[in-house]
């Protein structure tokens, strides 16, 4: 039994679904960031697998750029999280409902 492209794509889809479930289910902002990382990694696996099985290098390079984007997203996002934590004292999304209505 040999590995095919479909194996990798199914794995990537499963990981992406885990990420989506995390984004929808969790209410903690830090957990949302973790789930976003999971989704980005699932996309990376799909890119690398397609690149390897088709013989095109573009997939690996796009995965590299995705990693760069993820790194900068973490830098900015963590700064914003620290600001929010200083202002509200919590990272729970339900506590940020400041509008009365």
């Amino acid at each position: 039994m040999t590995l095919t492209l479909t194996h990798y794509l199914v794995l990537s889809a499963i990981l992406f679904a885990i990420g989506i479930a995390g984004v929808v289910r969790r209410k903690n902002l830090l957990m949302l960031f973790f789930a976003t990382e999971i989704m980005l990694n699932a996309a990376n696996i799909a890119f690398a697998a397609i690149s390897a099985y088709i013989g095109d290098l573009s997939g690996q390079l796009f995965a590299l750029f995705i990693i760069a984007i993820a790194a900068s997203e973490v830098a900015v996002g963590l700064g914003l999280l620290i600001l929010i934590y200083k202002k509200y004292g919590t990272l729970d999304l339900d506590k940020f409902t400041v509008m009365k209505g």
Binding site: A71, S72, E73, A75, V76, L78, G79, L80, I82, L83
Partner: peptide
């Protein structure tokens, strides 16, 4: 992103 992170976190 690095500059933004520094400025945001150091407020």
């Amino acid at each position: 992103a690095m500059i933004a992170g520094i400025i945001l976190a150091s407020k």
